[in-house]
Write a protein that binds this DNA or RNA. Structure first.
Lengths: 224, 224
DNA sequence: AAAATCATATTATCTGATAATTATATCCAC
DNA sequence: GTGGATATAATTATCAGATAATATGATTTT
C-alpha cells in the first residue's frame, strides 16, 4: 500500500485516503464525496479525524463543504498556498541553490518540447514575446515580479507538460524572495536574456536557448 | 474580537489570526506558540476550531505539533508542500504520455548532477547497483515494482536535488498503473537498461547515460 | 556524569450533542 | 399548471467533556 506507518497522525492518513478515493473514483471538480460520517465509517476512524482532514483540504481549496450539499471536490489553485507560504517563507531560509538547480533542470529540460511546439504554432512565440515586453515596460518591482513569473509560467505551459507547470508554480512561490533582491538595473539584463532565448527557440537553436536560459537563471547564484 | 465579515469558517479565521500572531510576535522556526486551549480562549472559540486551523497550517508545514512540546513554528520544505500537488495530479488525470515525458525531463535532467556526485562518492554507484540487483533477483510483480520505484527514487536522491525527489516520488505513484502492465519478460530489459545507464555515469559518459535512460523510459510509450 | 525512571503538560482522538445552513419536497394562491 | 412561500430533512459547523498517547523535564539510580 501507500504509506501505512509513516504518517503518524490520523488526519494526514485520512487526507491521503481521500486522495486515493478521488483517484479511484476518478472524481473531478464539483463531484460529490461521501458524507463525513460515511468516510469515517469507511476508514474506521471517528468523524472528528475525517473532519480535521477535510478542513485542512478545504483550507487549501481542494475540497469544499456546505451543509446539506456535503463535500465536493474543488479546484486546485495555488491561491491559498501562495498566501500562507509567502508569509512563512519570508521568515525561513530555504536552500537557494537547490531551488535554483531544480529550476534549471525543469526549465531547460522543457525547452526541446517548447521548440517543437513553437515550430508548429507561431502564437507561442508571440505570447512569450508579449509577456516579455510587458516585463520590459514594467516600472515597479511588483509588476516586474508578476511579469517575470508569468513569463516562466508561460514557458512551461508552452511545453504542454502540465504536471511540470504545476510544479513550477510551486517552485516560484519558494523562489519569490530571491527575486525581490534583484537590483533594479539588472532586470534589463533579464529581459534581454529572455528575448535571446525565445529567439533561439524560434530559429531552432536548442543548444543556444538552453545555454541562454541556464545563464539567465544562474544569475541568481552569483548574487549574495 | 472581529465581527466585520463573519461570513467565513471559524477555523479559517483562526488560521488567519494565528498567522497574524506569528507575524506580530516575530516568531521563527522552532519558536513556540500558546497551547491550543490558550489560543481558543484568546480567540473566543472552542479548542476544536483552533485544532482545525492548526491542522490546516500543519499540512503545509507552517506549524508543527507534538504532545508536551506544544505548537511550534515549522520549517516548510518542498517535500511537504509537494503533497499538495498530489491532489492536483489526482484531479487532472493526465495521460500516460504527459506523465512519461515529465519523468523523462526530470530524470534525464538530473543525470549531470548524479554523475558529478558519483565521481566524488563511489558509494552512490554501489547503492544504485545494489538496488538494480535486487530488481534483477525479484520474482513477483510486487517486488519488481517496489525495486523499480526504489531505483528511480535512489537515482533522484543521488542528484541531491531534494525538491525533485519529492516530485518524482509523486509522479511514480501515479505512474504505477502503467508499470503493472509490463510484460514479465521485459523486466530483464529494464534491468539491463538501468545497468548500462549507471555504468555510463560511472565512466563519465553523460550523453550515453541520457540516451539510455530516455530509451528506457520511452519503452512505456510504445506499449499499448 | 550518564543512564534509567517517573511525573506532567500538551496534543491526539473519541463520543455525543446542538446549532446553522441549504437542497428538496410540499403547499398555497392565482 | 406556474411561481413563490414554507416546511422537512440531510449534512456540515461548532461546542463540551473525556480519555489515550507521547515528549519533555525532573528525579533517581548506577
Amino acid at each position: 500500500m501507500l504509506d501505512a506507518v509513516e504518517r503518524q497522525n490520523l488526519s494526514d492518513l485520512v487526507a491521503a485516503k481521500i486522495r486515493e478515493y478521488i483517484v479511484a473514483e476518478g472524481l473531478k471538480a464539483g463531484d460529490r464525496l461521501p458524507t463525513e460520517q460515511a468516510l469515517a465509517d469507511r476508514f474506521g476512524v471517528s468523524r472528528l479525524s475525517v473532519r480535521e482532514a477535510t478542513k485542512a483540504l478545504g483550507f487549501l481549496g481542494i475540497l469544499e463543504a456546505a451543509p446539506r450539499r456535503g463535500l465536493t471536490v474543488g479546484k486546485v489553485d495555488m491561491g491559498r498556498v501562495t498566501e500562507y507560504l509567502g508569509f512563512h517563507l519570508a521568515l525561513n531560509d530555504y536552500s537557494r541553490n537547490q531551488l535554483l538547480e531544480t529550476r534549471i533542470v525543469i526549465e531547460t529540460g522543457v525547452l526541446p518540447y517548447v521548440m517543437k511546439r513553437m515550430a508548429e504554432n507561431a502564437s507561442i512565440y508571440d505570447r512569450l514575446h508579449e509577456i516579455n515586453d510587458k516585463l520590459h515596460r514594467a516600472r515597479s518591482l511588483e509588476k516586474r515580479i508578476e511579469a517575470d513569473i508569468a513569463f516562466h509560467h508561460a514557458l512551461l505551459e508552452s511545453s504542454g507538460l502540465e504536471p511540470l507547470v504545476a510544479f513550477n508554480d510551486l517552485l516560484q512561490i519558494f523562489f519569490d524572495r530571491f527575486r525581490r533582491s534583484v537590483a533594479t538595473g539588472d532586470w534589463k539584463m533579464g529581459v534581454e536574456g529572455h528575448q535571446r532565448m525565445i529567439d533561439s527557440l524560434k530559429n531552432g537553436k536548442l543548444e543556444a536557448a538552453v545555454d541562454e536560459l541556464r545563464r539567465h537563471l544562474e544569475y541568481h547564484k552569483k548574487r549574495k
